[in-house]
Lab assay of single mutants.
Amino acid sequence: HNLTITQGKLFFHYNPKLCLSEIHKMEEVSGTKGRQERNDIALKTNGDQASCENELLKFSYIRTSFDKILLRWEPYWPPDFRDLLGFMLFYKEAPYQNVTEFDGQDACGSNSWTVVDIDPPLRSNDPKSQNHPGWLMRGLKPWTQYAIFVKTLVTFSDERRTYGAKSDIIYVQTDATNPSVPLDPISVSNSSSQIILKWKPPSDPNGNITHYLVFWERQAEDSELFELDYCLKGLKLPSRTWSPPFESEDSQKHNQSEYEDSAGECCSCPKTDSQILKELEESSFRKTFEDYLHNVVFVPRKTSSGTGAEDPRPSRKRRSLGDVGNVTVAVPTVAAFPNTSSTSVPTSPEEHRPFEKVVNKESLVISGLRHFTGYRIELQACNQDTPEERCSVAAYVSARTMPEAKADDIVGPVTHEIFENNVVHLMWQEPKEPNGLIVLYEVSYRRYGDEELHLCVSRKHFALERGCRLRGLSPGNYSVRIRATSLAGNGSWTEPTYFYVTDYLDVPSNIA
């Protein structure tokens, strides 16, 4: 807008934040220059609390790290170098490059900038070799853009010569660093050979998330399962459950009422301010606690030095998902009996873990797994792929695949051998790939016309006998059925096997 004052003059007093240069501009645009008398524009009460600059400061050096910015700028000295009290560095987070010096300023003089007072450097006698002032900004957020400017702080001049310097606002972004852990990993099994893994992005990506790394490792069953005799009275049979499938998407929606109208769909109840505040506090606490764990609990591995020492970490090797089922080394339970199943799973520490690289999504279907087997899954978020990966501390989750139908069934015939004193040795093959492992066998036998009897055969007993022995049988026709019990439950009964026990007292003698 054009402003013209045809008559009258300007009068400025007691404006401590208004620089004289701005008042002189007002004289020019209003056409009143030359009308004012000496005392109409006070030299001592206008701009006496402001830094009124008329020179431009330029930054000469900028260096960044993930949490620091090192700045240096060209030296500046007023005509009387004693008038320079120091520099004021202003900075704040700036997602967009549209910041002005006066953003967030209120009537009390406060604003949204963080201000650092910096002492002037030592003055050199040689004007050509003056030290460049600077400042190291610490405690910054990774991968965050900051708006920065600097200006001088000078003393009051009796001659009211307006001098000083100020830089333009520059924008500097800190470097990326390792992201925080992925949030809320959930693993479920939808079949006997697959596990579905879902997660949420890290709360602090500290860069642009480029991919996720998912490692999985087959877990050995508890050692007590191999040692305890679950045929003993009072000892509860062990059981394991597989990871249940995901709930429906509708039930997972946030901010939804727990109660549904019987007449149909209901609208979600909005969260109160107290609920939102509580969630923010919980989120802040979780982030602080995660940072504490990362800094205190997890110790970084030592990389190899120039002395030739090897990095103890196993090298990563990509495998196809079809090879995942046989990740671990199978060892027989008892070496003397080769027909026992290889369900003991000690994992070799030198073995390469299978892994998958996930790009542009937060889910993965891990296939080719062994049925009813526990897996430990390790999830890392990465925001750099080359020249070397920059990934987060791992988040861990466990899951067990679903049982395989008929995996616990005894394959092959049940054979028998009759000894003296009416002892019958029953023999059968253990299931080759049971659900988890076989903890015991149930032997059901009966003599024709009598009630059915049951015998429990422990895992250890089966390994020693290759089956079991029935003792003290009365003469007669017998039928026997056997079924295995694994961590997933009972298998199917075998087809009945028949044998006849004679009275050993009636056996004919070869003595003449």
Results as ranks from 00 to 15, higher is better:
P205F: 15
P205D: 15
I209D: 13
T210G: 07
H211E: 02
Y212K: 00
Y212F: 15
L213R: 11
E217G: 11
R218D: 08
E221A: 01
D222S: 10
D222P: 06
S223P: 15
E224N: 15
L228D: 12
L228M: 09
L228E: 15
D229M: 12
D229R: 05
L232N: 14
L232C: 14
G234L: 09
L235Y: 07
K236D: 09
L237S: 08
F246C: 10
F246G: 09
E247V: 12
S248C: 15
E249C: 09
Q252D: 15
K253S: 11
H254P: 06
N255G: 13
S257N: 07
S257Q: 11
Y259T: 13
Y259P: 08
D261R: 15
D261V: 15
S262V: 08
A263W: 02
G264D: 15
G264V: 12
E265D: 14
C266V: 08
S268Y: 06
K271G: 06
D273G: 07
Q275A: 12
I276P: 08
I276Q: 15
E279P: 08
E279T: 10
E281H: 14
E282K: 04
S283E: 14
S283N: 12
S283M: 15
S283W: 03
S284L: 06
S284W: 14
F285Q: 12
F285V: 06
F285G: 04
K287S: 07
K287A: 06
F289K: 04
D291K: 06
Y292I: 05
L293V: 05
L293R: 15
L293S: 06
L293A: 12
V297D: 11
V297C: 04
F298D: 14
P300M: 15
P300H: 09
P300Q: 09
R301T: 14
T303V: 06
S305A: 10
T307D: 15
E310P: 11
R316Y: 02
R318H: 14
S320P: 05
S320D: 11
S320W: 05
G322M: 14
V329Q: 07
A330H: 14
P332N: 08
F337E: 11
P338W: 10
N339K: 10
S341N: 15
S342P: 05
T343F: 07
T343Q: 08
T347Y: 10
E350T: 08
R353I: 15
F355E: 07
E356M: 12
K357S: 14
V359R: 08
N360W: 15
K361R: 07
S367V: 11
S367L: 09
G368D: 07
H371T: 13
E378S: 07
Q380N: 12
T386A: 12
T386K: 09
E388T: 13
R390L: 11
C391V: 01
V393M: 13
A394W: 12
A395L: 11
Y396C: 09
V397F: 14
S398C: 13
R400N: 06
R400L: 04
E404R: 04
E404W: 04
K406A: 14
D408P: 00
D409Q: 09
V414D: 00
V414T: 03
H416P: 10
F419Y: 02
N422M: 03
V423L: 03
V424M: 07
P431V: 05
P431Y: 02
E433V: 15
P434S: 09
P434H: 04
N435L: 00
L437Y: 13
V439Y: 14
L440M: 12
L440K: 05
L440Y: 14
Y441S: 01
E442I: 07
Y445W: 12
G449R: 15
E452T: 08
H454P: 04
V457L: 14
V457T: 08
R459V: 15
H461A: 08
F462H: 11
A463F: 12
C468N: 01
C468F: 08
R471M: 05
R471A: 15
L473S: 01
S474Y: 12
S474H: 08
G476V: 01
Y478P: 01
S479F: 03
I482Y: 01
R483L: 02
A484L: 02
T485Y: 09
T485M: 10
T485I: 13
T485K: 13
S486A: 09
L487E: 04
L487N: 08
G489R: 10
G489I: 08
W493C: 02
P496F: 10
T497R: 12
Y498T: 07
Y498I: 14
Y500G: 07
V501K: 03
T502Q: 07
T502P: 08
T502D: 03
T502A: 14
D503S: 10
S509F: 10
